[in-house]
Nucleic acid binder design. Structure first.
Lengths: 167, 167
DNA sequence: TTAAACTTTCAATAATTACTGAAAGTTTAA
DNA sequence: TTAAACTTTCAGTAATTATTGAAAGTTTAA
């Protein structure tokens, strides 16, 4: 496998994974391209490499910036803007986890808490609703907390938690 | 919030979360409905409750069964088939993690390994491709392994790993 | 066997989501 | 200022994905 084959394989695989996880293909592919690019790229560069339109490129770059994993850079003396990816894999993971938690998981946890706290009325179906949504609430809340802690590299927390587990 | 409101809120929230994570709405909603149902439901029951067609119901129930989180049940003396959800939240998480890992993560890890192992040719762009995909490979591989271990409740592994971390 | 009761399949269609390209907007050098 | 160089927006269109419903398939009781 030569450079071009490897690059294309990486970009298309990353795009496909994105699609499977609810991220649009162009957005994932732009991210992949910037992730492996040694230098920042202009909009033209991206459009040309991925064969996508100016509008599409602009919209998805904005989203990537909203996610905090792509940054605008200006080269001195040039009018054009360049775009660069966050390059540190830990920071990438941290940022993605943080945003998915904030936008998608936390709101669901809130609903699960509300729903699981309705008053029981003695019927079986209400009991079951409460029991099952409560279980989901506890799982989601724990997983969310743990993920955020791990990804925030709060090693003190991790160590403390582990100590408790072992004792 | 009464029972019906809570039920509807849970089902629609679960459906919306599914959509965000690349799972179709009907599939997520059928799962939600069975998750809180005290007894197995027939196809008719599901169609009626969620206002979806027979074909849609049948196809999505099959997918849920493929994921290993919904099961067919037959009541003695009845021709009709009934469907029930896995009810244990740990087992649900275990199963979903296992399937997403197998179907989606493992194949991507394989590609990342291949791509990150191409021969360097001394150019900057090839070095960057190798470095960045290798970093992603290591992150994904570690995360996948850890998730599977945690979710498989391999507490021995967890304890050992934690001991190492603390020392 | 057969026919009623039920489930699955799949071609057609609807709904959703993504993408384009040109017009409008913005920035900056002169 | 203004006009060139660039980016953003968004209405229209394309592509993808989900859904329907009826025909085909399956199962079982008699």
């Amino acid at each position: 496998m030569n450079y071009t084959e490897a690059k294309d394989k990486f970009i298309s695989t990353w795009g496909a994974l994105g699609t499977l996880w609810g991220i649009n293909k162009a957005m994932a592919q732009i991210h992949a391209l910037l992730w492996i690019s040694p230098q920042p790229l202009s909009m033209e560069d991206i459009m040309e490499e991925l064969h996508i339109s100016r509008g599409n490129t602009s919209m998805n770059l904005r989203q990537l910036m909203d996610w905090g994993i792509v940054f605008k850079e200006s080269k001195p003396g040039e009018r054009k803007e360049y775009f660069a990816s966050e390059k540190d894999v830990q920071e990438l993971a941290r940022q993605v986890a943080k945003e998915r938690s904030r936008r998608e998981i936390k709101p669901v946890i809130k609903v699960l808490r509300e729903v699981s706290r309705i008053k029981g009325d003695g019927t079986k179906k209400t009991e079951e609703l409460i029991k099952q949504t409560k279980a989901l609430y506890e799982l989601a809340d724990n997983a969310d907390t743990m993920m955020n802690k791990i990804v925030n590299q709060e090693s003190k927390w991790l160590t403390k938690t582990l100590m408790k587990l072992i004792k």
